[in-house]
Design a protein around this nucleic acid. Structure first.
Length: 414
RNA sequence: GCGAUCGUAGCUCAGUUGGUUAGAGCAUCGGUUUGUGGUACCGAGGGUCGCGGGUUCAAGUCCCGUCGAUCGCCCCA
């Protein structure tokens, strides 16, 4: 298998059942986003490197060591997108979408991060993405969360997934809490793991969700944001949770759920499963009111989430791959020639069908059977001479002779 | 980037303390009187045992390196 040509590390060839499941996730997302009146948007797979460097933050691992950046032939530094949000915000500014705000947008496609591959974690992976740009209403957060919840329900995986919810407050709250956290962890410096000592300088809030047991006492005794929540921020969070309750979406408060980047405000959430090991987050997002400003636009509140298609597909049941309605079995050269016209007519009439090209009749019938087709259309020379074909019901085994002209109507009648 | 486990046909695996031409099931292809599938039987193709080096009379089996996958850490929409 691994001769000369090998897949690039962290990439995947998706086919067969996996491809069916992957497509089912995308199709379900597309159906659900229409129900919520989210517009489809297509964006470039690469952007100027500065778009991600400025929005995601120079100090993050994503920007400092996980981006696929390269210089193009014109000497510009470009980067394959490591996420959707930054590019979408750039588009919002470049395309003048502020006139249309609030905008409800949905997109999906490949994203790229140079990471150590694991199950459910690839260097080219695929995300669904939903964002509401230009709304500072908690109703936007609610709508996005209900959308995510319905997506999981339609995929049949909502049982194994829980919504964890937190608030990071407004800018002032967030700063006050952050300062309190730093003070708290400074006083416990001696108890922290090496990783968390680095976090203390770079990303102190991340100590809260550290998995290292050495960090847990200090993390667990750290102050919650609640004591620092400004009244408006508290009100915002209460409206979000009340909206979820009204919509019948189950959630749990996770006061240790945080976002490292400064432009995150208010709602932060993750839909988490324990069925995928360390890669447990299947949908994650939050409100990022400060991002578009950081990119050079005017102050624009926004909220959104992204979901890993591969992870959702791994949780989803196998979907039966769509079978053709009929398979043509031509016998002999003249029949094969005639079959080309017949199958073209059927397909133009919207009837999914296939044709076997090789083997003897027994083989072709076996092929027709394993395809799952409802009918086999047997085209023999003598039948063709009479302008007829044999239509065989693969389930009952019944077979009848039919005028070629009646074939389309007969199959479409079903 | 760090630590650990693993790597034999398309897939799932077997391969005894290193010992002759590396096996099975599934799948594929062909056949069981030549125009009829799902069952059964017969047969065939397909592997330089991830790759490279080393130890040995002898390596799929041991050692080293490398690549890849997996598990955890890290990071994360």
């Amino acid at each position: 298998m691994s001769r000369n040509v090998q897949r690039v590390r962290g990439t995947q060839d998706i086919w067969g059942e996996d491809a069916d499941r992957f497509q089912a996730v995308v199709d379900t997302f597309d159906t659900v986003r229409r129900l919520y009146a989210f517009q489809r948007v297509e964006m470039p797979v690469f952007e100027a490197t500065s778009v991600f460097a400025r929005s995601i933050g120079e100090t993050t691992d994503i920007v400092s060591k996980e981006m696929y950046s390269f210089e193009d032939r014109g000497g510009d530094s470009l980067t394959l997108r490591p996420e959707f949000t930054a590019g979408l915000c750039r588009a919002y500014i470049s395309e003048g979408w502020q006139q249309l705000a609030p905008l409800k947008l949905a997109t999906h496609g490949p994203v790229f991060r140079y990471e150590r591959p694991q199950k459910g974690r690839y260097r080219q992976f695929h995300q669904l993405d939903a964002e509401i740009v230009g709304s500072d209403s908690p109703a936007a957060d609610v709508e996005l969360l209900v959308l995510a919840d319905q997506l999981l329900r339609e995929l049949g995986i909502s049982d194994g997934v829980t919504l964890q919810l937190n608030t990071l407050g407004d800018a002032e709250t967030r700063e006050a809490w952050r300062a309190a956290l730093v003070a708290h962890f400074e006083s416990h410096r001696g108890d922290l793991s090496d990783d968390s000592l680095v976090r203390l300088d770079k990303n102190p809030m991340r100590i809260l969700d550290s998995k290292d047991p050495r960090d847990r006492p200090a993390a667990d005794s750290a102050p919650d944001i609640d004591a620092y929540l400004a009244p408006e921020a508290r009100g915002f969070f209460e409206k979000v949770t009340a909206g979820l309750d009204a919509a019948g979406v189950a959630w749990t408060r996770n006061a240790r759920l945080v976002r490292g980047l400064d432009y995150y405000r208010h709602t932060a959430f993750e839909f988490v499963t324990d069925r995928l090991g360390a890669q447990g987050a299947v949908i994650a997002g939050g409100r990022y009111d400060g991002l578009i400003e950081a990119l050079g636009g005017s102050h624009t509140p926004a909220v959104g989430w992204a979901a890993g298609i591969e992870r959702l597909a791994m949780l989803a049941e196998t979907v039966p791959s769509p079978a053709p309605e009929a398979v043509l079995v031509p016998l002999g050269e003249a029949a094969e020639a005639a079959a080309i016209g017949i199958i073209a007519t059927l397909r133009r009439a919207g009837i999914a069908c296939d044709m076997g090209f090789r083997g003897n009749m027994k083989r072709r019938m076996a092929k027709a059977d394993s395809s799952g087709a409802r009918y086999a259309i047997i085209l023999g020379e003598d039948e063709l001479a009479r302008g007829e074909a044999s239509l065989k019901d693969m389930k009952s085994g019944e077979q009848q002779s039919l005028a070629l002209a009646a074939l389309t109507e007969k199959l479409r009648a079903r």
